[in-house]
């Protein structure tokens, strides 16, 4: 895609290394994400893609390396602080709150923006009541945007897989993130659902100006919608650039197709 323009670097990862005991999940990885772009991370299974996202939003703490987000350097980030700074994400295996309705799930996405104390909420008067209504308004906008009005009050456990994925995206969007991390948003979907999801991702990027970092196995999708692609293999970066550059990179081809010995 060439119509969009991306801005300055807002996330810069420098020499990130992550180990679990003796297992090296990520080794010396550096790449950056520009404002308003769609940045894809691809690679074979076990390449460290999800670990990379977990480093970005603070679920994992890398042993080495620097992360600069909006010009602010951090070594260690707690996930709820990352959320407060505008990083939202979805998960590879759907991580919705199964016992709650769609509406409640999405309302949970706005939790960092709600400030009434639990005592005010217990009395349900003044600020607590006002906040519930204001945030409901915002949540309804997200519901409209993702076209899930009809399932608003349904418990998420009862929804089919494709819709659950969409609700998870809604929950992430409800936080009005500046950066959205999507971990295989199209895994297990049929062609139609994939098209819908692509449309939503492009719309989010377009309308809200949200920067998107995305992991996806469907190469057609990746090459179509992303501005730049970074390729990981065995925890190392083997390629980085526009879809066309990556496609013709010999190292990437050998990682995906294998090489003759």
């Amino acid at each position: 895609m060439s119509g969009r323009t991306s801005g300055d670097v807002i996330l810069d990862l420098q020499n990130i290394s992550l180990r679990f005991g003796g297992v090296k999940a990520l080794t010396d990885i550096s790449f950056n994400v520009r404002e308003h772009e769609i940045r894809a991370i691809i690679g074979p299974n076990g390449a460290g893609k999800s670990s990379m996202l977990n480093v970005i939003n603070g679920v994992y703490h890398p042993q080495e390396g620097r992360i600069v987000f909006h010009g602010e350097e951090r070594r260690k980030m707690e996930p709820h602080k990352a959320a407060a700074q505008g990083i939202a994400r979805t998960f590879q295996n759907i991580a919705l709150f199964k016992g709650m309705s769609v509406l409640d799930n999405i309302m949970t996405g706005r939790i960092t923006k709600m400030h009434a104390s639990f005592l005010e909420q217990a009395i349900h008067f003044g600020r607590a009541r006002r906040e519930e209504l204001e945030h409901r308004q915002k949540v309804e906008e997200v519901i409209d945007f993702l076209e899930i009005q009809h399932i608003r009050k349904t418990p998420v456990g009862r929804l089919p897989y494709g819709l659950q994925k969409r609700v998870e995206l809604a929950r992430a969007l409800a936080a009005e993130p500046t950066m959205l991390l999507l971990d295989e948003p199209m895994a297990g979907m049929n062609v139609e659902e994939k098209q819908d999801m692509c449309r939503f991702i492009l719309d989010v990027n377009d309308q809200f100006g949200t920067t998107i970092v995305l992991i996806e196995h469907d190469m057609g999708v990746v090459m179509d919608i992303s501005d730049r692609v970074v390729v990981l293999d065995y925890g190392k970066k083997i390629g980085d650039g526009t879809p066309d550059e990556v496609r013709s990179n010999p190292e990437v081809i050998s990682a995906y197709l294998g090489v003759s010995h």
Partner: peptide, 9 residues
């Protein structure tokens, strides 16, 4: 889902 809860903030 406590991991997701933490990531949400």
């Amino acid at each position: 889902m406590d991991v997701a809860a933490e990531v949400i903030g």
